[in-house]
């Protein structure tokens, strides 16, 4: 385990009694270390998450489009993504270290692989859920295959697509904590630090709560974008 620059081990000579007694939550210590520890860690956490979800999205979308046209290919993707998803995360991180080292790349490869199954499954469900009548009308009116996909199938799959992204994102935000074993970034770093430091409660709780809040915030953002993207679902029924 590497030391985090700026993360300070409790110095019993100078710090408050709260820190010395390992109290439940020491506000002053938390605010002192917001700018050198927690603030940057949140930023790194978010970047790691966004990269993993973005790459995962591209792969899962491509796979689901292939699977939508070729059901047998879909079965293949499903097997592969399920297999990857069932590998315990710590094991996968450690397995990758010999190849890619203790780097962000190692973290991202593992994180991305965990997003694939849930996004793929949701995207395929969304595409297959477009009503046959709508597709028949679209074909009968002379929309080409590409036009049907872009103008009809993908927009109507938005709710399922966003649902997949939400589950993948929240999952990855949790896994980034574990990724701190191989990549010295994110809110996992102060958590590991606190554990090593005879379970320093303030640091542990602060990092964990921030990870949860980050997940909520990003999820709320995704719900909001779905709301904006699907005006037809907002209208009241007749």
């Amino acid at each position: 385990m590497l030391a985090v620059p700026g993360a300070v081990l409790p110095n019993f000579g100078q710090t408050s009694s709260c820190v010395r007694n390992n109290g439940l939550f020491c506000w002053s210590w938390f605010s002192q270390h917001w700018s050198d520890t927690f603030g940057p860690a949140i930023g790194q956490h978010l970047v790691l998450t966004v990269i993993a979800v973005a790459i995962g999205f591209v792969i899962a979308m491509a796979a689901s489009l292939v699977a939508y046209r070729l059901p047998w290919a879909g079965a293949g993707f499903n097997v592969v993504f399920t297999l990857v998803f069932t590998i315990p995360s710590i094991a996968l991180f450690e397995l990758l270290v010999p190849a890619t080292g203790l780097t962000r790349t190692t973290a991202e490869i593992a994180l991305t692989s965990y997003t694939l199954l849930v996004m793929f499954a949701n995207f395929v469900t969304g595409l297959r859920g477009v009503s046959a009548d709508v597709l028949e009308a679209a074909e009968g009116m002379g929309l080409t295959r590409g036009q049907r996909l872009r103008r009809v199938e993908l927009p109507l799959a938005i709710p399922a697509i966003v649902a997949g992204i939400r589950v993948a994102t929240v999952t990855v935000i949790g896994l980034v904590v574990v990724a701190a074993y191989v990549d010295n970034e994110g809110l996992g770093v102060p958590i590991l630090q606190a554990i090593q430091n005879s379970s320093f409660k303030t640091e542990l709780i602060a990092a964990a709560v921030l990870a949860v809040l980050l997940a909520w915030a990003v999820d709320a953002l995704l719900v909001g974008s779905q709301w904006l993207l699907t005006p037809w679902l907002r209208s009241r029924r007749a």
Partner: peptide, 16 residues
């Protein structure tokens, strides 16, 4: 198809 009007029983309006 663009030159032929097409109406089906289930209507198939684009919900979005």
């Amino acid at each position: 198809r663009r030159e032929i009007g097409y109406v089906i029983q289930q209507i198939g309006l684009f919900p979005h």
